[in-house]
Amino acid sequence: MQRVNMIMAESPGLITICLLGYLLSAECTVFLDHENANKILNRPKRYNSGKLEEFVQGNLERECMEEKCSFEEAREVFENTERTTEFWKQYVDGDQCESNPCLNGGSCKDDINSYECWCPFGFEGKNCELDVTCNIKNGRCEQFCKNSADNKVVCSCTEGYRLAENQKSCEPAVPFPCGRVSVSQTSKLTRAETVFPDVDYVNSTEAETILDNITQSTQSFNDFTRVVGGEDAKPGQFPWQVVLNGKVDAFCGGSIVNEKWIVTAAHCVETGVKITVVAGEHNIEETEHTEQKRNVIRIIPHHNYNAAINKYNHDIALLELDEPLVLNSYVTPICIADKEYTNIFLKFGSGYVSGWGRVFHKGRSALVLQYLRVPLVDRATCLRSTKFTIYNNMFCAGFHEGGRDSCQGDSGGPHVTEVEGTSFLTGIISWGEECAMKGKYGIYTKVSRYVNWIKEKTKLT
């Protein structure tokens, strides 16, 4: 034993070699072989497995989906700052455009905790909710729209109204504003409101030439003092309507412009014939205590009207009353817009006519005020429907199939267009061939041609 100890002390290297040989010859039971080890760690190889990531292109799944990435790591994937920024906006807080917040056709661009709407022409605001041009839906104005110097929408209202708090709607500024039905039992019968379409306001006024200088022999019209197929109006439903009495009662109609003036057809009036105007009328054979009678003290036909040349060209006249009318729910003026808007309103496509005229061709006159909704007829169809001249200051309205029309005794009465609950004068009943005849239409004086003249002559002093 002493000898062994001496050998170990003198030859430590020998001992180490012996131990190493023993270990190498022993069977290893701690580690699995290569094949079995792979069965336990069965993990798919990654895209760049075996390579240094710093030297390969980034992978979106590896960089940002398996674990949260930084902007720089995302930049490695896209290799483009702009594309990385677009991805980053949604990656950080989701897609803010998912709810489609942009209105009126706006395009949404996502941002971090926010979004941006790219608005089409005519709109602005956070969600493109603000109209900035009158060309689109009248700028959301209830009545009139004008573009300011910086191309912003400025709404306005006709006389007797003021802008509401929203700067879009119009509200009454006087007790009985024009064009409004205020009798409670008839307010439910107000005709369907007309909503502004998209309009090209630059070209809204037709490029028409008034044929002022045409000389033409007097034409022989049949029954051209021209509501057939209409309905009984309720008291106060058309408070701007008046009836004219002269040699015979209810020979023509008219509309209240203001307390002192009536507008009617020029062919209705004769110099030297006494005319009485009755406002607030409903049943011409009954006294309903809503009527107001006034005498006409002055007749002003349009300066281009000449019955000797043509009885229905420039067929418009103004009547001055001896005493002002007292405005109330049964006696209310009709609204008159400017030339541009009167023309736009007419193009809405349908209007209402009213009167006490004959209820059928050569038949009896109506006792109760009649009204009828009539569609506008395109000019080409209008011209083809008659052998008589249709001037540019006239328009056609009615039904091709016949059966409904204005008729004798309705002449001078109103053709009105309702705009968001307020009625505007767009025409004056003038003439036609018979009444409600198939293929024939009622012919009306186009008020847009005469609004400046009306307003100039009827100013209240």
Score class of each variant (00 low, 15 high):
424 F>K: 00
289 H>S: 14
375 P>V: 06
319 L>P: 00
340 E>L: 10
79 E>Y: 10
57 Q>L: 09
316 I>Y: 00
214 I>D: 07
383 L>N: 10
405 D>K: 14
439 G>W: 03
211 L>D: 14
318 L>C: 03
39 K>E: 13
87 F>W: 11
103 L>Y: 08
301 P>W: 07
57 Q>G: 11
3 R>E: 06
80 N>W: 04
81 T>H: 11
414 P>R: 01
337 A>M: 02
238 F>E: 01
283 N>A: 07
259 E>D: 06
344 I>E: 11
50 G>Q: 13
382 C>L: 03
341 Y>C: 03
81 T>Q: 15
437 M>N: 08
416 V>K: 01
83 R>E: 05
208 E>C: 07
303 H>M: 08
136 I>V: 09
133 T>G: 12
67 E>Q: 04
328 N>R: 01
295 N>H: 14
160 G>N: 06
10 E>Q: 09
336 I>A: 01
183 V>I: 13
157 C>G: 01
329 S>A: 10
170 C>T: 01
90 Q>P: 09
229 G>I: 13
364 R>Y: 08
174 V>S: 09
401 E>W: 14
174 V>F: 04
209 T>M: 14
178 C>D: 01
328 N>Q: 02
359 V>Y: 12
163 L>Q: 03
397 A>M: 01
233 A>P: 06
16 T>W: 13
196 F>Q: 08
22 Y>C: 11
83 R>G: 12
314 H>N: 12
430 S>E: 03
406 S>T: 15
250 A>R: 07
183 V>S: 12
102 C>W: 01
182 S>V: 09
446 K>L: 03
18 C>M: 11
461 T>S: 14
424 F>V: 01
129 E>K: 02
140 R>W: 11
38 N>V: 09
3 R>D: 06
90 Q>K: 09
153 V>S: 13
148 S>W: 07
309 I>S: 07
396 C>S: 01
25 S>P: 08
314 H>E: 03
437 M>L: 15
190 T>I: 14
38 N>Y: 10
295 N>L: 07
122 G>M: 04
320 E>N: 02
211 L>R: 05
66 E>H: 05
10 E>F: 13
106 G>Q: 00
197 P>V: 13
253 G>L: 09
148 S>K: 09
246 G>L: 04
233 A>D: 05
285 E>T: 10
150 D>Q: 10
125 G>R: 00
438 K>F: 09
380 A>L: 08
21 G>M: 15
258 N>M: 02
263 V>P: 00
172 P>W: 03
12 P>L: 15
330 Y>E: 04
108 C>T: 00
249 D>M: 09
449 R>T: 12
365 S>M: 10
25 S>I: 14
181 V>M: 12
61 E>G: 10
265 A>I: 00
428 I>C: 01
138 N>T: 05
240 W>D: 00
94 G>I: 11
264 T>R: 00
445 T>K: 00
257 V>C: 02
294 R>W: 01
453 W>Y: 02
426 T>R: 01
282 H>R: 08
299 I>G: 04
209 T>Q: 12
418 E>R: 09
256 I>R: 00
114 S>L: 05
25 S>C: 14
341 Y>E: 05
405 D>M: 13
349 G>M: 04
73 E>Q: 08
358 R>P: 08
69 C>W: 03
6 M>E: 05
273 V>I: 09
82 E>K: 12
186 T>P: 11
415 H>Q: 01
118 W>H: 01
71 F>S: 11
114 S>Q: 10
407 C>I: 06
363 G>Q: 11
173 A>T: 15
35 E>L: 06
404 R>G: 15
26 A>V: 12
134 C>F: 03
240 W>N: 00
102 C>F: 00
103 L>G: 06
376 L>I: 12
184 S>N: 14
313 N>K: 11
223 D>K: 07
208 E>G: 05
141 C>A: 00
145 C>N: 01
221 F>Y: 09
34 H>R: 13
112 I>R: 12
188 K>S: 14
92 V>C: 04
427 G>L: 00
260 K>T: 02
92 V>F: 09
423 S>E: 02
377 V>L: 10
406 S>I: 11
394 M>Q: 11
419 V>Y: 11
3 R>M: 13
114 S>V: 04
359 V>P: 04
40 I>Y: 13
204 S>T: 10
279 A>W: 00
92 V>T: 06
179 G>P: 00
258 N>Q: 03
326 V>K: 08
40 I>H: 14
378 D>A: 09
373 R>P: 10
362 K>C: 03
88 W>N: 15
447 V>S: 03
421 G>K: 09
267 H>M: 03
300 I>V: 12
138 N>S: 05
275 I>H: 05
361 H>Q: 05
174 V>Q: 09
192 A>Q: 09
129 E>R: 02
49 S>I: 11
307 A>F: 08
42 N>M: 09
222 N>M: 11
312 Y>P: 03
413 G>Q: 07
252 C>G: 01
10 E>V: 13
81 T>W: 05
408 Q>W: 13
233 A>W: 07
360 F>E: 13
31 F>K: 09
82 E>I: 05
92 V>Y: 05
370 Q>L: 03
385 S>Q: 13
410 D>L: 08
135 N>E: 09
284 I>R: 13
137 K>L: 13
384 R>I: 07
26 A>P: 02
17 I>T: 04
70 S>A: 14
231 E>L: 07
193 E>Q: 04
254 G>A: 04
358 R>E: 10
310 N>P: 03
435 C>W: 03
28 C>P: 05
277 V>E: 00
249 D>F: 05
209 T>N: 15
20 L>M: 12
137 K>R: 14
271 T>C: 05
220 S>L: 14
55 F>Y: 11
213 N>H: 07
186 T>V: 13
320 E>H: 02
247 K>E: 08
90 Q>T: 08
260 K>M: 06
442 G>M: 13
24 L>F: 12
353 V>G: 02
244 L>W: 02
